[in-house]
Design a protein around this nucleic acid. Structure first.
Length: 592
RNA sequence: GAGGGGGUAGCUCAGUUGGAUUAGAGCAGCAGCCUUCUAAGCUGCGGGUCGCGGGUUCGAGUCCCGCCCUCCUCACCA
């Protein structure tokens, strides 16, 4: 009998198969199989309670009858599963040490996980849109989340078998450029992209322009006019724009390099400058778009909020009254391009949650447009995240004071990590400590964003972002380091020395083994809503189970069978922790 | 006003879609554990009327209704 890779899925199938032959159950019986509180069992089926309620039967009697029928099939090896009816009528399944041992021997390494996971997305073509910053600005803490969450989601999707294209859809064709061009003109500034202070100059000028246009509507109109000139091909503005883009792209790239971020393509808004006319034409032709107050807009009367009759009307403005494009125009053009050029089955947008209305309008417009033109609409998903708030509890905005620059944050993280590694492992060479500090510092930053639900807002705090203890990246990395250290001391590679391993025996061994089996469930959960924190939570629990095992059960003991099985548990822990960390884009280290 | 997020321990957050006498972590606090594989660790203790009030049922932090607080978005910014 083969060892089940995913016992929950198999038990679910078995119960579905057997149930119809038992009095009181229908053909469409849903066992509602799920992981259980480990104090009770590994898995539990709750579905019998629903059946009993409907039929007004006795749930425990029904559950017992079902369990008997399952046992009678002989398909459930009782050496592997303990089955019992518990509480009001749950069916509990507990994996025996024999089952845990068999599973650990069978599912050894990342290739097994990957093969199992690859079925989940089954080769679908997915375009993921991240981190897509607005250029012409220095990157600050607000740019952290799209980089970190986007990369984790991308890796998750890829791991689960998608053919992925990472598209950095930079904001390089919007009013922010109008503002900047205006400010440069007014200051009589001569921009030189080669100048070392170019970025700081732009930063300063943008701030000036921003203040000016906020205070004075006439200035805002002037900025829009500069943008309109740019979009209509004015040579002077175009030349200036190119210089600005050059400066800001270089600056962004420096940050990306430090995060190891590599997108496949960078097709910003400006790439679609000659593709928006088709959008205007088609939307008008199929009767979706119409003129309103001089602008070209789309109403969705089937949704009260976006209807023209809404109390506070919120049209989807696809072309501004001065004829220039905005993000709705370019997003629609982008949607079409991704569907036609990349043949996307699915598009994932990773952006700030404040853009939810925009994406709902975009998706609705896209659906109607594609239907009317007989195109196939890709599945569209908006993976949004909450805001990083300033100390005052308000969203960080360039205007309200100076938000912490991303580079400062990286530097501080690296410095603190260097101090920590120097204090704890002074015997390592400075070069090695520097490399570790860089990995640990960035990892700590990333993990903060990946450990909690992405839809949550949180307040910026140095101490929170740079914590190295507790549920943090360094904690997970440290677990890996301790596993690897055992193998290094023994002079063997991870995964060796398992011959003759017996089944898990001590409570901490068993707890660790059970936790190891939970990896696929965590992946399922994280993939479903593209929420990486489910994976983080799991990895933290796994590292904690390893910590308890490590403290309680010495690996290097004389008994060869015990030693072999503990080495096996160590190797599996290492493999799953490293695989999981890499899915979060955290690169584990050998020592720290 | 409409839509969205949030309200769970002093603080920061999980809570696998309605399950099990006792709602979980991490920080912070207290008490222990380094002559054994890395103490960025481990063990234990204390700390909660899950915003408030109703309802649905065998069973609610989770679902329904009504309130309260807070953050975000709502005509040419992305």
């Amino acid at each position: 009998m083969p060892v089940w890779f995913n016992p929950a899925r198999e038990l679910d199938a078995l119960l579905r198969k057997v149930a119809p032959s038992v009095a009181g159950f229908d053909a469409d019986f849903n066992p509602e199989l799920r992981p259980s509180d480990p104090r009770h069992a590994d898995f539990q089926a709750n579905g019998v309670l629903a059946v009993a309620k409907k039929a007004k039967g006795n749930p425990r009697a029904l559950a017992t009858a079902l369990v008997d029928a399952v046992k009678a099939t002989g398909e459930l090896d009782e050496k592997l599963f303990q089955v019992e009816v518990a509480g009001p009528g749950f069916i509990n399944f507990k994996l025996t040490p024999v089952a845990l041992g068999a599973w650990l021997r069978e599912y050894r390494d990342e290739s097994k996980w990957r093969a199992g996971a690859a079925r989940m997305m089954g080769g679908r073509k997915v375009v993921i849109d991240y981190p897509s910053p607005n250029t012409a600005k220095q990157m600050h803490v607000g740019h952290l989340r799209p980089i970190v969450i986007g990369e984790a989601v991308a890796r998750l999707i890829e791991f689960c078998g998608a053919k992925l294209t990472r598209d950095n859809h930079i904001g390089d064709w919007g009013t922010n450029f109008g503002i900047l061009i205006l400010a440069i003109r007014r200051a009589g500034f001569k921009l030189d992209s080669q100048s070392p202070t170019a970025l700081d100059d732009l930063e300063r000028l943008y701030k000036e322009g921003s203040v000016l246009t906020k205070a004075d509507p006439a200035a805002l109109d002037a900025a829009r006019a500069e943008l309109a000139k740019l979009q209509s091909g004015d040579a002077e503005n175009l030349a200036l724009w190119e210089e600005i883009v050059k400066v800001s792209n270089t600056a962004c790239q420096r940050i990306y390099d430090q995060f190891g971020l590599k997108t496949d393509v960078i097709l910003g808004e400006s790439f679609y400058r000659d593709k928006v006319d088709q959008v205007y034409t088609e939307l008008q032709k199929v009767g979706l778009a119409e003129e309103s107050e001089g602008a070209l807009v789309v109403w969705h009367d089937d949704e009260p909020r976006f209807s023209r009759h809404a109390e506070t009307p919120m049209p989807f403005i696809v072309r501004k009254k001065d004829g220039s494009s905005n993000y709705a125009s370019t997003d629609l053009a982008t949607l079409l391009y991704r569907a036609e050029y990349f043949k996307a089955d699915e598009i994932v947008y990773v952006t700030d949650g404040r853009q939810q209305d925009h994406f709902q309008q975009l998706f609705r417009t896209g659906a109607k447009w594609f239907t009317a033109t007989k195109r196939t609409l890709p599945r569209l998903r908006h993976v949004w995240f909450g805001t990083i708030l300033g100390e005052d509890g308000k969203a960080i905005k360039t205007k309200s004071g100076d938000p912490v620059r991303l580079q400062s944050l990286i530097d501080e993280a690296t410095e603190r990590a260097f101090a920590a590694v120097t204090a704890k492992s002074p015997e390592l060479s400075e070069t090695e400590r520097k490399a570790i500090a860089k990995a640990v510092g960035i990892a700590a930053l990333r993990y903060v964003d990946l450990a909690s639900n992405r839809t949550m807002d949180y307040s910026f705090s140095w101490d929170k972002l740079l914590a190295f203890e507790g549920n943090t990246a360094p904690y997970l990395m440290y677990a890996v380091v301790r596993v690897r250290s055992i193998f290094r001391k023994n002079g063997i590679e991870v995964g060796k020395g398992e011959e003759g391993a017996t089944d898990p025996e001590t409570p901490t061994e068993i707890a660790l083994a059970r936790k190891l089996l939970g990896f696929t469930a965590a992946l399922d959960l994280a993939l479903e809503d593209l929420r990486p924190h489910h994976l983080s939570t799991y990895l933290h629990e796994l590292a904690a189970a390893y910590g308890a095992f490590y403290a309680a059960d010495t690996v290097n003991v004389d008994d060869p069978a015990v030693r072999a099985r503990r080495l096996m548990l160590c190797a599996r822990t290492c493999s799953i922790l490293e695989t999981g960390l890499r899915l979060l884009a955290i690169e584990p280290v050998e020592r720290m």
